[in-house]
Design a protein around this nucleic acid. Sequence first.
DNA 1: ATCAGGGATGTTTTCAAAGTCATGTGAGTA
DNA 2: TACTCACATGACTTTGAAAACATCCCTGAT
Lengths: 144, 144
Amino acid sequence: MFSKSCEYAIKATIYIAVQSNEGNRVGLKDIAREIASPEAFTAKILQQLSKCRIINSVKGPNGGFQIDKSEMARIKLSQIVLAMDGDSIFKGCGLGFKECSEKKPCPVHDKFKLVRNELRRMLENTSIYDLSMDLTKGLTFLQR
Amino acid sequence: MFSKSCEYAIKATIYIAVQSNEGNRVGLKDIAREIASPEAFTAKILQQLSKCRIINSVKGPNGGFQIDKSEMARIKLSQIVLAMDGDSIFKGCGLGFKECSEKKPCPVHDKFKLVRNELRRMLENTSIYDLSMDLTKGLTFLQR
DNA sequence: ATCAGGGATGTTTTCAAAGTCATGTGAGTA
DNA sequence: TACTCACATGACTTTGAAAACATCCCTGAT
């Protein structure tokens, strides 16, 4: 469904959100350990998220990553997916056709549209804030 | 969403269905040309479909692939996906966790369940017969 | 100004999916 | 029986995402 990068990105963003809510700035090592991801690879993903203004990075001693509390509710899952995997999951044809449209639909075009719209709706309506709250409350988990 | 193999498998099955409806048995070359897929790779996919009883193969001169008319309505998209990609798309966790369940859900578990159920419903309710009919009627296309 | 902590960036390496090639096997035909 | 057509099978190669490695650069503290 999503690329590995995107999966890590979602996990990392949620973890950073949880920590930011408690006023903590977190470093790469922390994040990689907490979401069980390869450190070097995670670094790249965090840089990408940082470029896309989804998270903030601070260099130097006591540096790390954080998310502004004021922005947390604004950040939706869809933004992370878009930043990591592009819009292929929203626009791409179910059978991989480059040109698949209402005018010239592939055999599963209409059927997939329904599912994709449901997916899009879900991603656009799910905020990182909500996900981080569930995690803080112990309703969900970031391991296993 | 699906592997390349699965995309080809769906396209191939639909094409074979269309031809079978007109009483034609089709060969590998025909299929590969029609769905614009690499021939050798397509051969493997057809063999897999054949093993899973989704299509029938006939060896020798005037051999080829076909689908029994009587079975065509019974074959659903879900069977092809299952044969090619396994059940990961139905069961797999949105964040890639090996153990993700109601008991120990990942942060997006519930949200994904809705989307996945919609996908499953769609795949289980879409028959190859219906898709082949749309193609025959010129409502859908297998190229581009 | 220097030093160390920690993020940023470019280059390899690894591995599974995608795709190719060579050869085997069964079926129809003469 | 011999030949040929077309599917079957397994080993091999290629490609690109995932992951690892090495190095650079910015920042705060002393």
